[in-house]
Design a protein around this nucleic acid. Structure first.
Length: 601
DNA sequence: GCCGTTTTCGGCCCGACTGTTTTCAGTCG
């Protein structure tokens, strides 16, 4: 059962509780867990198999039992009781934008739409026939809104389909450029998951600092690529682009921009925790400021300005707000309520790695044709060396794919590898002005047997190899783990590349026993790659965090197949930052003389 | 239903916007 299916189940139960007027906080508990599971990169069913359900935030003793029953039997007695008496047909509607439990219930019961399989079409027909507007609480406007929402949903144009970070960056920066043309705009910043550098982005959130809110919002609504206005008010607006993606704008005057930044950056979980902390300290925190609770009116704050008209402390900078709550400023990448607030209280946040710390890149493909098993790079070594030099790197590793095994004899491959090494060395010696050090490496396939796809003798022509899985993805967890560990056991195998094999939005990763892998890597001094390709971003951030806790060393690689791809590095760095990795956790922040000892030993 | 360096009981974030209303419920983030 996938995370999304489990999440939907919990959401349906929460909806049933809402309709039956159950305890508000029980409903929140179900909804909260549904949210957390939907966005978790750890499969909740895997957690259950490992007997670790209750380590997941939001799962206590009761929900642990319920989910256990769900995975064992495929259904839960308690859930079925909760939904008893409610028409099954209301639940599919909940996935459509604008439908909550109450409106869905009202519609399916009034219109007697009882077939859950056809309810979306049935409701669409009813709306077209004008049967919704006369229902109490609805009107002409809601009838047309429902038609539109159902159409978008059927077309798959919902903003819940997430886009890769790189793509969202491009969409956002286009809008930023546009907004800056308005003279009333002081600053405009991408916030939300974009600022937290989440690997995939749902909506694009932007905040503008201005003293002319109304005119900025008007300007925003005139954006040339806008398709529809979703929402519009004094504080901001939401538009949808023709690709279905939404852009959310909030405006605020500079004196209150700090709290706006904090609020709109999220995450939701981080904000809730922060607001609870503020309550403990005698304040109610909102996007506007810190409002003293009636019980603590005489409390003075060192930072922030007192706005007597609003009766609250306001903040122009985010740093001052965090300081006022007794916290260190928390980098956006850490704001997921996974312990960062507790650490910030003790002023012991990790010093997470930055792009400036990166001194090299071990995973670059060249255009040198060694008749590989997979795709060649597009750029020659000399271009890559110049680029590396421009980026200030001390060293790079060239990791072309291994020569195809099926098309060559071992003898052929030995020759190819020997020539390749000689070619690279020749390029180096004839370009003495280049200071960047070169590791002649390879990206070698781990075959289903666990053997590496390179004859024994050919290893003499490389300094080290990256190993990775490019075939037979559908193995069970145990077999796959054994396969990888066998591959990594080769003395020249130093790095496991794109470890989960996931392609964002296209392919889930294969099954691996992470505990076993981490243990092996730590004991044998092997590194795990964070692949910076925006379609991969693999190792995922949550697993980076576990690897770091385990003491496993990582490398951040671009996996460039073109010299321009070397600029992907900051995306990998973002993943590392989200996984709480410090400089010392990452091999390619180390100087050459340290790296050479590890890599070529 | 969850959760805990002020608690194993008694708390649980805060607000915007819309449509249908005459003061608010529902939905969303």
């Amino acid at each position: 059962m996938t995370n999304l299916e489990v999440s939907k189940k919990l959401r349906d139960v929460a909806a049933a509780y809402i309709l039956k007027n159950k305890d508000r906080f029980r409903i929140i508990a179900y909804e909260r867990l549904a949210d957390l599971i939907a966005k978790s990169s750890v499969e909740i069913e895997d957690l259950w198999k490992d007997g670790k359900l209750s380590t997941f935030p939001g799962i206590g003793s009761t929900l642990s039992e319920r989910l256990d029953e769900l995975f064992r039997k495929g259904k839960v007695k308690h859930f079925e009781e909760a939904m008893k008496g409610l028409p099954e047909s209301l639940f599919p509607l909940l996935d459509v934008q604008g439908f909550g439990p109450k409106r869905a219930f009202k519609l399916v019961t009034t219109l007697k739409l009882n077939n859950p399989k056809t309810v979306l079409n049935d409701l669409f027909d009813a709306a077209k026939a004008g049967k919704i507007a006369p229902i109490e609480g609805f009107g002409e406007k809601s009838q047309t809104d429902i038609l539109k929402a159902l159409e978008e949903y059927k077309k798959g144009l919902t903003h819940e389909v997430r886009m890769p970070l790189l793509y969202a960056d491009a969409v956002a920066s286009d809008m930023v450029t546009y907004l800056k043309k308005n003279p009333g705009v002081f600053t405009v910043l991408p916030l939300g998951s974009l600022r937290r550098k989440v690997s995939t982005i749902g909506d694009i959130d932007l905040a503008v600092s201005t003293n002319h809110s109304a005119s900025v919002i008007e300007w925003f609504l005139k954006y040339p690529w806008m398709k529809t206005i979703v929402e519009k008010g004094d504080k901001g607006a939401t538009i949808a682009l023709s690709n279905g993606k939404q852009i959310d704008l909030r405006v605020q005057n500079p004196s209150q921009f700090g709290t706006m930044l904090q609020y709109f950056t999220g995450s939701k979980e981080h904000n809730i925790k922060l607001r609870e902390l503020a309550l403990q300290k005698g304040f109610s925190l909102s996007e506007y400021g810190l409002k003293p609770l009636p019980s603590s009116r005489n409390f003075k704050l060192r930072y922030g300005a007192w706005d007597s008209k609003k009766g609250m402390w306001i903040f122009s900078s985010e740093e001052r707000l965090y300081e006022s709550l007794g916290l260190s400023w928390i980098p956006p990448e850490l704001r997921e309520n996974t312990g960062e607030i507790e650490r910030a209280e003790k002023h012991k946040l990790p010093q997470i790695v930055t792009s400036k710390d990166i001194k090299g890149d071990f995973h670059i493909h060249t255009s040198y044709d060694l008749e590989p098993s997979h795709d060649l790079g597009a750029s020659p070594l000399i271009d890559i060396l110049h680029k590396a030099s421009d980026m200030g790197y001390e060293y790079i590793g060239i990791s072309d794919h291994n020569p195809s095994v099926s098309n060559h004899t071992d003898e052929d491959i030995n020759t190819i590898m020997k020539l390749r090494k000689a070619n690279y060395e020749h390029i180096l010696s004839s370009n003495k002005s280049i200071r960047v050090k070169l590791f002649v490496m390879l990206e070698t396939d781990i075959l289903p047997s666990g053997e590496l796809a390179l004859p024994k003798k050919a290893f003499d022509y490389i300094d080290a190899t990256i190993v990775s899985i490019h075939s037979s993805f559908a193995m069970d967890k145990e077999t796959m783990t054994r396969r990888i560990l066998t591959g990594l056991s080769h003395p020249k195998a130093k790095i496991l590349a794109h470890p989960t094999g996931r392609l964002l939005g296209k392919r889930d990763g294969y099954q691996i026993d992470w505990e076993k892998l981490f243990k092996f890597c730590k004991e044998n001094n092997k590194a795990i790659e964070i692949n910076s390709n925006p379609d991969r971003l693999d190792l995922p951030d949550m697993l980076v965090k576990r690897a770091v806790e385990y003491g496993v060393k990582l490398v951040i690689n671009s996996d460039s197949h073109d010299v321009s791809h070397m600029d992907f590095m900051p995306y990998g760095v973002s993943v590392a930052r989200r996984g709480w990795a410090e400089k010392a956790d990452i091999w390619n922040t180390m100087p050459y003389n340290k790296v050479v000892q590890w890599l070529t030993r």
